[in-house]
């Protein structure tokens, strides 16, 4: 534990020059008390006609007009000090926080130690991965296997330093378990995020989270707004638990094309593989059985009407072999593929 704190301090003191911390870009010093959030609702039809074949997070109700969550955030910056408090209520909240019925999505304070170095402590969205809990932060309404099986939030303390407007580094020490308000035993997950902006409008994040309890995830998340109409995103990750094998690896590609002022089309093409487990393993993931893989293809449209976004989406997932699949068809017989249609409406404010 002490060694990790020392490493953290060394990492912070080694940095020499930079401009702005990209990990926690501030809303500017003169920002007022800012209110933000969203409300979302959806209808889903699993084309098997029953249940919840595709096991990724949220939008879990079949053949039902259902609610996601109401998300309410407040933030304020005074001088170098700022806070963010974000609460949410609803099924999407309950599936995304450590304890169903608790409502904290983000709760942290931050302080700019210098114009280049900031310190942040509290419970915050994870730095790992491409997709997020808030429906306003994702293009697709359904979520990927990489997102579902990775961390959602981390509680901890982190320092962020920007070497320039193109390179910054975050280093932090987090609780031993992901998605938990308190640690199980100690504060022993070490996290690092290297942010690189090779060219304007292209940002890449190289992420590592590792600890004796949490296991180790290596992650690359990148997005490039190539033209005003075309954006390409990519997420690649591999995770290994600390003991008995298991884990996953995968890659997802996110091309998106704005075809008009209000309509953008996007595809998520994901390959996800469940690693094999050793005897005695209790590791369980949402996806194919250990040793199997799945390809998920999701075609989504975002149709804007002011702050409201309509999201029609079709998705087809196919597992490589029947023996690794938990999908069933309309007769409840095992099958290798599953498909669903979703229509969601998300209001952002």
């Amino acid at each position: 534990m002490k060694k990790k704190f020392l490493l953290l301090l060394l990492a912070a003191s080694a940095f020499s020059y930079a401009s702005k911390a990209q990990d926690t870009v501030k809303t500017t010093a003169d920002a007022p008390l800012v209110l933000y959030g969203s409300v979302d609702t959806y209808y889903k039809d699993d084309l098997s006609g029953h249940g919840n074949n595709i096991p990724t997070s949220f939008a879990s109700d079949n053949n039902s007009i259902s609610i996601g969550m109401i998300d309410l955030g407040l933030k304020k910056t005074v001088g170098n000090a700022s806070f963010v408090g974000e609460l949410s209520f609803g099924p999407r909240n309950d599936q995304s926080v450590p304890t169903s019925g608790y409502h904290i999505q983000n709760l942290y304070v931050s302080y700019n130690l210098t114009s280049k170095l900031s310190a942040t402590a509290g419970y915050m969205s994870t730095f790992i991965g491409y997709e997020v809990i808030s429906p306003t932060g994702n293009f697709n309404y359904s979520t990927s296997y990489l997102f579902t099986n990775g961390p959602f939030q981390n509680a901890g303390f982190k320092l962020t330093y920007a070497f320039s407007d193109k390179v910054s580094l975050m280093a932090g020490i987090f609780n031993d378990e992901w998605n938990a308000y308190t640690s199980e035993h100690d504060v022993s997950t070490f996290g690092v995020q290297l942010t690189i902006t090779p060219v304007k409008n292209w940002t890449a994040y190289l992420n590592v989270a590792t600890g004796p309890t949490s296991g180790t995830e290596l992650d690359l998340t990148t997005a490039y707004q190539i033209t005003t109409a075309f954006k390409l995103g990519l997420n690649a990750a591999t995770f290994s638990p600390s003991h008995y094998g298991g884990g996953f690896s995968g890659v997802a590609l996110y091309p998106q094309l704005a075809v008009s002022k209000v309509v953008t089309l996007g595809l998520r093409e994901e390959y996800f593989k469940a690693k094999t487990v050793d005897a005695g393993s209790t590791y369980v993931l949402a996806g194919p059985l250990p040793g199997g893989s799945v390809i998920g293809s999701t075609l989504t449209a975002n149709i804007k009407a002011g702050p409201l976004t309509f999201i029609p989406e079709v998705r087809l997932d196919k597992v490589n072999k029947q023996e690794y699949s938990a999908f069933t068809n309309s007769s409840l017989a095992p099958t290798t593929s599953a498909s669903q249609f979703v229509l969601a409406a998300v209001y952002a404010f």
Binding site: T24, V34, Y36, K75, V84, S125, W202, A223, K231
Partner: peptide
């Protein structure tokens, strides 16, 4: 994801 308001690139 952290609740910060940031510019949309591009």
């Amino acid at each position: 994801r952290y609740g910060n308001s940031v510019p949309q690139p591009g």
